[in-house]
Design a protein around this nucleic acid. Structure first.
Lengths: 205, 205
DNA sequence: TGTACATCAGTGAACGCGCGTTCACTGATGTAC
DNA sequence: TGTACATCAGTGAACGCGCGTTCACTGATGTAC
């Protein structure tokens, strides 16, 4: 049982790293089993085919990302009860986490999948969609809380603003990969944070 | 001569569309030549190997994107001489252009390449890097002009702000692809525009 | 405590298919004299 | 105006290699009686 979990997540680790560097099609089962030190047959014991690998990889990534956001913003809420400050602290924690990764964040499995989606079945594509919709809902909810306490200096669509959190992260990771730099994503998050500080102003009652 | 140019760009058109949907590795020469109605040998008359196709595709994409930005912001400058308003108009034109694409912008070749960069040689990767650095320089220059005339409400790094234009576009396109919606990129650009309106304020002398 | 059987987590050889690439050839157009 | 040769823009058959997948088998561990 312990070995099973171990092998399975070793496969997923290796696959994820390779997919982010070369794409899904170019990630061969041969190289995965070589890295995980199992035989070809061993791979197919854990995943019925390559598409099942893609789905498992995405599911794991989305779960991890959601758990991270949960944790980050729960800590932020502990530090400050005001919804705007909670948001700002959470974003700062996210930026710091990205910056502290020794060789930079390797990129987002969702973006990679989105740019190769014809390779996958409808289920995988929907997983991707639901993940982004989930983040929209999460951040939209937080912005609604903020808007109850603060005024808005310019009218904005809160769904779009919620998407902007994901968009800024995704965009930052693309820049980071293309530029071969390490801190673009955290820098972009910090700029977005400044945006929020300018956008939301104390309500005058 | 005319036929040559025609076949070559037909190949590039088909390759680009396929790369954005499936990635570079999954784009086969077989399907390209079927689409372009030539034989396998005909492909290799135009490109010495598949890497040469990748490079030509990227070069063409970057040139087109630069030409588009040139044109958009030249028109914006015609409409308003003030550097901030020129920026705001240019971004609006960009957002409108993205929105007017009948089936949505298909995505960015640079992002796709960035997420598969181990497939390419150093030259291709550098092309990608230089393109983004070029946009950083372009937009940073525009923001410097703005900062000469306007004050800045919160301190920001102008390089990072320049990158944010590319980042917001890239991020918006990832959202758009993952969500299978059409207007996320233009929406994100409009939000960024609001950011700039809040950030730059008339200087009090 | 011993025996029989089932399940788990693989091994490793074999398969056929599709891929990128090469190459000898071709017919149309362009150029030199 | 006619002839010889060169270049352009391909054709289409052939190549070998690596890919995803299947399958018969195996040895270790778990469960029932």
């Amino acid at each position: 049982m312990d070995q099973k979990v171990d092998t399975r997540s070793r496969i997923l680790d290796i696959a994820e790293a390779s997919v982010l560097e070369k794409g899904f099609e170019a990630t061969s089962i041969e190289e995965i089993v070589a890295g995980a030190e199992i035989s070809r047959g061993g791979f197919f014991y854990h995943f019925k085919d390559k598409n099942a690998l893609a789905r498992a990889m995405l599911e794991r990534y989305i779960d991890a990302e959601n758990a991270l956001y949960d944790e980050l913003f729960a800590r932020a809420r502990e530090l400050n009860d005001d919804p705007l400050h909670c948001m700002l602290i959470g974003l700062k924690l996210l930026a710091e986490m990205l910056e502290d990764m020794p060789s930079g964040h390797p990129g987002c499995v969702i973006a990679s999948t989105a740019y190769q989606d014809r390779l996958f079945d409808e289920g995988v594509r929907d997983l991707n969609r639901q993940a982004i919709l989930g983040w929209r809902k999460r951040f939209r909810g937080m912005f609604e809380e903020i808007a109850e306490v603060y005024g808005v200096k310019e009218p904005v669509n809160l769904d779009a603003l919620g998407d902007m959190v994901s968009g800024v992260v995704e965009g930052g990771l693309v820049l980071q990969r293309a530029l071969r730099e390490h801190n673009n994503a955290s820098e972009q998050i910090m700029l977005f944070r400044t945006y929020l500080k300018l956008l939301f102003v104390p309500k005058q009652t």
